[in-house]
Amino acid sequence: MHLDWSTLALQTINVLVLVWLLRRFLFRPIVDIVAARRAAVEKTLADAAAAMAGLDARAADLAGREQAAQADATRIRAAAHEAAKADRDTLLQQAATDAAQARAEAEAATARARIAMQRDLERQAGELAVAVAMRLLQRIPAEAATGAFVAALEDMLTGLPDEQRAGLAEPGAELEVASAAALTPQARAHIAGRLQAVFGYAPALRFTVDPALIAGIELRGPHCTVRNTWRADLDRIAADLHLDSTHVEPALA
């Protein structure tokens, strides 16, 4: 068997060089890139795990915030409910107070209106009564009615206090005798006689006619007047009616 030693040596060197070349250009780059990819994958997995852990923590944080928000919402809702209830009670109480006050004011206004109306009605009724009485009395002849008043006039003068009776007529002063209709001479003489009997002297008389008196006689002295006429009676009745309604008003107000 022949062996070419130079070829053996060259082939040995060639294979060793090829080992170096492939180590340099094939195996090391491939091993490095595989290791790099493995490291990248591990880093990606680690990052993913870290991101997952971060997401879990974030989710837990959000869940906690949601619970806190729900608790706040419940508390705020309860507070708002309580405040609304308090406001409602206050408004209802205020409304009840206002309604009571308005009702009282309305009732007072109604009472005042009723009183005013009643007073007006009474006044109108009085005026109507006086008018009715005047029309009725005007149907009676004044001369016929005056006779009765002359007798009553004597009684009135007699019943007056002395001071007033003395102030009615003075000696030398003129006393006006007003009547609704002109007096007959007999009636004038009768009246003069009666006045002389009352005063103790004969006063100076001046007879006048005043149809507004309706019926009766009115003595008009310098200091006072004695009214004995239907007009005076009707005025007094009307005044009494007005006084009665005036007395009722405060009790109703």
């Binding site: 070419d4 130079s6 070829t7 060259l10 082939q11 060639n14 294979v15 060089v17 090829l18 070349l21 492939l22 250009f25 094939l26």
Partner: peptide
């Protein structure tokens, strides 16, 4: 002094191809 034989020559070609 070195005779380069055909196997060596082919080996060089293989080395060139692989490397």
């Amino acid at each position: 002094p070195i005779a380069v034989t055909e196997p060596v020559l082919v080996t060089w070609g293989i080395m060139l191809l692989l490397a």
